[in-house]
Amino acid sequence: MKFLKRSNGKHPEDAAAIPPVIDIREITKTYQMGAEELRVLKGISLRIERGEFVSIMGPSGSGKSTLMNILGALDQPTSGQYFLDGEDISRLSQTALARIRNHKIGFVFQNFNLLKRTSAQRQVELPLIYAGASNRSGRAKAALESVGLGDRLKHLPSELSGGQQQRVAIARALVTEPSIILADEPTGNLDSRSGAEVMQIFQRLNREQQITTVFVTHDPWIARHTNRVIMIRDGMIVADQQVAKPLVAGVDERPSEAEELAGIFQAAYYGEHSAESAGANGSHAHDDSTGGGSGIPEQIAEGSAAS
């Protein structure tokens, strides 16, 4: 598979003719809060190759969104370099950045950020309008079809479920055929089923169309669907590992709450404690250790040869 070809550990100069989609070097971001300096990113270097499917995890406040905004050309680093498709964009003008956002980046937000009282199709056409593209409605329809909303073209956000709204937002990110899709906690506002649906779409787009995707998630189950997990803590990358056997959305069933909680109880106040049932349903196609949900990074990284 494509993502396996990534030149892990090699220097940028040795890379193949096709430059990595994202190549950031010693990126820092410092906010001036009155007299104090708040160092949010403390020197992050990272390369993401074409076709990769990456999740970023880390505790709240560790700088994940700050990093995503810089990767998405919505913000600029305090220092460091950012090569997007081989082009240094760390010191571009606002207008040039707008063009980069329009042509090369598809951003998906936690809270969808759809326009009020605007039909799904018009939402998806929006980036095409700023691109001055032709056949906008055709392309918007195709993008909506690819996220399974071909029958919801005229629906307003208020007429769609949360999961469907996020799929509209994904279609909007896709429609310009960007180099990369960046999603900051795209399932954060969704229930687990809708979250799984959205996950499934990202995974399918990556598998079928090799769309490079990076997203932030707090949910280990979701992270296990990606090929590479990057852990951030206090503005620094603390782990960057490949997933041995990524889960397949729609095939691998998420363990039920009862299963996830199995074996932790001492005594029942109501109902029966049934450790057997958890064991009975707890087999999975790809993963051999699903029982406990704690200590995720280590588990995901289990068997990974990376780093």
């Binding site: 998405g72 919505l74 207008t95 707008a98 063009r99 929006l126 980036p127 700023y130 691109a131």
Partner: peptide
């Protein structure tokens, strides 16, 4: 404001 932010995020320039 959020609409403006979104428009900019999907590629609207200040001039637009």
């Amino acid at each position: 404001t959020r609409e403006i932010g979104l428009r900019k995020a999907v590629g609207a320039r200040a001039g637009d």
